[in-house]
């Protein structure tokens, strides 16, 4: 797959933004400025950027608890996103949701989800609605290998095919659901083969290869947009960090983590673009510097933003707000 310089720069910038954003979020958490917990997707940037890049600007996504990458790939304002992590009144969810519920409805991100598999049944409904509205929009619904074991997933696949909804399902198979290895109950091919069981096309790809993800998702998008019903893409990838902030990494070895770090999606894309002479080292340094500056601005914005007023605590439970 060939990409122009401009497009390559955009992909690389987004991957860097995701990584630097998460590194910053982690630092702010350690410094006690962000509380609760968070699920970092460092190491999985290509699956977020590659898949979302196959969508048009009006298309929608549904995300997961590990959703920072999805949100940034969909074009979120990094300042509003960071402000939400800081629980601030001007964050995307007015400080009510935080990392695990980040949503940017205006730009088509219908939200992360604290419940594993919680977004998949909704995806059916979003798809159904989009189909009824008939404006050519489609949905990309993310979920993890762990979510594929839920009943919610299997009911949703049944309905998706039955109603031929315009939904691309993207399974980010990062090999684990918390400590539970997905290879204990299925394989990457097994995950992809669920598609055939239910009657839709499905494919697994190297999720750390941005262009491979993009190509597979574009194929799925075309199938879906042409009114042929849903499709599934499985991205094989790996999370470098612990599951969340309380993980002690007892279930995997340092060797395994290091081996996957060798397959760093950002390094791979960079090297590929240098090889292809699409980007120079100089271009890449500028892009990285841009991402660093964007995140630093987001941090400054978040830190200087106001907290929600306690008097507003009970607002917003019902419409209108």
């Amino acid at each position: 797959m060939e990409v122009t310089k401009e497009i390559a720069e955009q992909y690389l910038l987004q991957m860097y933004q995701i990584r630097v954003f998460e590194e910053q979020a982690e630092k702010s958490y350690m410094a006690g400025k962000i509380h609760g917990t968070m699920h970092l997707s460092i190491g999985q940037e290509a699956s977020a950027v590659g898949s979302v890049s196959a969508l048009g600007p009006k298309d929608l996504i549904l995300s997961t608890h590990r959703g920072h990458g999805h949100c940034i790939a969909k074009g979120a304002d990094l300042k509003l996103m960071m402000a939400e992590f800081y629980g601030k009144a001007n964050g995307y969810c007015r400080g009510r949701g935080g990392s695990m519920h980040i949503a940017d409805v205006a730009s088509g991100n219908l939200g992360a989800n604290g419940v594993v598999g919680g977004g998949i049944p909704m995806a059916v409904g979003v798809g159904l609605g989009l189909k009824m509205q008939n404006e050519g929009k489609i949905l990309l619904s993310f979920f993890g290998d762990g979510a594929a074991s839920t009943g919610a997933f299997h009911e949703s696949m049944t309905l998706s095919v039955l109603y031929q909804v315009p939904v691309v399902y993207v399974c980010e198979n990062n090999q684990y659901a918390m400590s539970f290895p997905s290879n204990k109950w299925t394989t990457s091919e097994g995950l992809a083969s669920f598609a055939a069981c239910y009657g839709m096309p499905g494919k697994s790809v190297d999720g750390n290869d941005l262009l491979a993800v993009l190509e597979a998702t574009e194929e799925a998008v075309e199938h879906v947009r042409n009114g042929n019903g849903p499709a599934l893409v499985v991205c094989d990838t790996y999370r470098w960090r612990g599951h969340s902030k309380s993980d002690r990494n007892r279930y995997r070895s340092q060797e395994e983590i290091d081996a996957w770090k060798e397959k760093d999606p950002i390094e791979r894309f960079k090297n590929h673009m240098i090889e292809k002479k699409t980007l120079t080292i100089d271009d890449i340094e500028k892009i990285k510097a841009q991402a660093d500056a964007d995140i630093e601005n987001a941090r400054l914005f978040a830190e200087s933003s106001p907290d929600p007023d306690v008097s507003t605590l009970e607002e917003g439970v019902y419409a209108p707000w």
Binding site: G36, G87, G95, R96, H101, P308, V310, L313, V317
Partner: peptide
């Protein structure tokens, strides 16, 4: 209170 538990530390507390 008659709300879901919010994320913001201070709101959650109250």
């Amino acid at each position: 209170k008659e709300v879901p538990i919010p994320y913001n530390r201070n709101l959650e507390y109250h």
